[in-house]
């Protein structure tokens, strides 16, 4: 897929509002992008968008590739007498980032703001403390409880309102975790058929416990699975000599072990050897951090060897993250190569 088209898809998907459990907008955005590129498409009972791209028939393998369509955000849980919205986090949100933000409320995309007590009225002690989410509220301009209830009833989703845009050599936008992976999966589904049937699944509810991937993994029952992600790049300058988790510009990030799973050693080795042979840059994710849908998929049925390939992104889980298109492109190239070289013999021998 052409560079411009890829960036265009990434930006358009990044702008979609799709918190865990409320992913209709992402499915709606994906359908036209997948039209004509897949042979079957269905939505399961959790909301996973399950597509099948039929293979050339050379191989009988059944392979699953996933990317999750949910993003972290908030949910309205109550209203104050003054018309403000009380919210709780959907997935892991960093409370420190919220004060001073614009947000987007509900299907109607009502604008809202999160303000805090003026600095003039805050004690020196208060100024040092991060304010927990339960003490914050969202102001949509409603004048009283009744109006707030009408405009944003309990259960309404609240998301960051960032619109994606280029920034220097990078792209800025919200929800690159995991719109980066979604973009990569769309690009893969646009390629020529693979030797085997490829199930491309856009999963739901990753951020609240890898829920969609678990049932999709069970339904598809693949022989092997690849999970496409946008992952943490903690590559800012630091006083201490500690790991960066991953670094922007260094190519796809391969997981060795995170909190949710350990990559099948042979699958990791195979992918690394391919990357080296083809001259594709790659890096290892610092072990022991985070978790992905692979954590759920590898435990389905009799077990599924799995590997996560991720695009390094700065500031994920916040209102605006950054990635380098070259990393996204290299992730697609490496995943495509890993898929196309995969054989049933490799699986049997490991």
């Amino acid at each position: 897929m052409k560079h411009e088209r890829l960036v265009d898809i990434l930006q358009s998907l990044s702008n979609v509002m799709s918190t865990s459990g409320d992913e209709s907008e992402m499915r709606r955005a994906l359908r036209p992008l997948l039209a004509g590129q897949v042979d079957e498409l269905r939505v399961d009972s959790l909301g996973n968008l399950i597509t099948l791209k039929k293979g050339t028939g050379e191989s009988q393998l059944r392979v699953l590739v996933t990317a999750h369509i949910d993003e972290v955000g908030m949910m309205v849980v109550d209203h104050t007498p003054d018309g403000a919205l009380k919210v709780q986090a959907v997935g892991g949100i960093d409370d420190r980032l919220l004060p001073g933000l614009n947000v987007c409320v509900g299907k109607e995309q009502l604008p809202g703001v999160i303000g805090i007590k003026a600095i003039h009225h805050s004690s020196s002690r208060e100024r040092l403390k991060a304010i927990p989410l339960k003490e914050l509220s969202v102001d949509i301009g409603a004048e009283n409880r009744k109006e707030a209830q009408r405009l944003a009833p309990v259960g309404t989703r609240v998301t960051f309102s960032t619109q994606a845009h280029p920034l220097g050599e990078l792209i800025a936008g919200k929800a690159f975790d995991d719109r980066a992976g979604c973009t990569a999966l769309v690009a893969l589904l646009h390629e020529e058929p693979f030797p085997f049937d490829l199930y491309g699944v856009f999963t739901v509810q990753e951020e609240v416990g890898l829920r969609g991937a678990r049932v999709a993994g069970y339904a598809v029952a693949p022989a092997v699975a690849f999970v496409l992600e946008g992952t943490i790049a903690d590559d800012l300058p630091k006083k201490e000599d500690v790991g960066p988790t991953s670094q922007i510009g260094q190519g796809p990030v391969l997981t060795v072990m995170d909190r949710s799973y350990i990559s099948a050693p042979w699958l990791l080795r195979y992918t690394v050897q391919l990357a080296e042979k083809l001259g594709i840059p790659y890096q290892f994710k610092q072990p022991g951090i985070g978790g992905t849908d692979a954590g759920a998929i590898h435990l389905t049925r009799g077990g599924v060897p799995s590997l996560t390939l991720a695009v390094p992104c700065r500031y994920i889980h916040g209102p605006i993250s950054l990635l380098k298109p070259a990393d996204l492109e290299a992730t697609i190239t490496l995943t495509s190569a890993a898929l196309r070289h995969l054989t049933a013999e490799q699986l049997a021998n490991n």
């Binding site: 799973y261 389905t300 049925r301 009799g302 077990g303």
Partner: peptide, 10 residues
């Protein structure tokens, strides 16, 4: 308890 889970399923 990962291996036992999938083995018991099989």
């Amino acid at each position: 308890l990962r291996g036992a889970r999938t083995a018991a399923f099989s």
